[in-house]
Amino acid sequence: MKWLFTGTLSLLRTLWIVFLHSFRKRETVNYPEQAVELPPRYRGRIILTRDPDGEERCVACNLCAVACPVDCISLQKGEQEDGRWYPEFFRINFSRCIYCGMCEEACPTSAIQLTPDFEMSEYNRQELVYEKEDLLINGPGKDHDYHFYKVAGLAIAGKDKGRALNEQDPIDVKTLLP
């Protein structure tokens, strides 16, 4: 018979505790009226950034497209006269994207980044396919100082081999011959 009393008391206590929730603060955010506070590292709409000099960061290495689990990124490499690589087109199908952030992790040049923006609904599904001009922004994004060509060994116009940051001059292997 003891379980009956303890059980009843426990039920009444539950009722009381739930009733006390009337005076709690509500957790819901009234979204359209009230802005949502998103953390800066929230994974939302994808952008392509530029380096501090204002040049495109993307070098069309295709690592993001490979890393993407849903294959929503597609791009094609192009080459400028100065030797820089760039994507001729860069297309992200946001109706497939799952915002996993693997492209961002894979990117060697910090070009592709995810932003805390999720308000990208469209009435037409085709509108969700973002082209390069939709993705590219005028700024370095989260990575303010990183400049890929300044640290990479690739020679481009105005920066020869061995001129990059922390890079030694290339060694002429033929001088090492015995």
Partner: peptide, 11 residues
């Protein structure tokens, strides 16, 4: 139910 679950319910 919304009130007791710390949310608003239909508003």
């Amino acid at each position: 139910l919304g009130l007791w679950q710390d949310r608003y319910g239909p508003n």
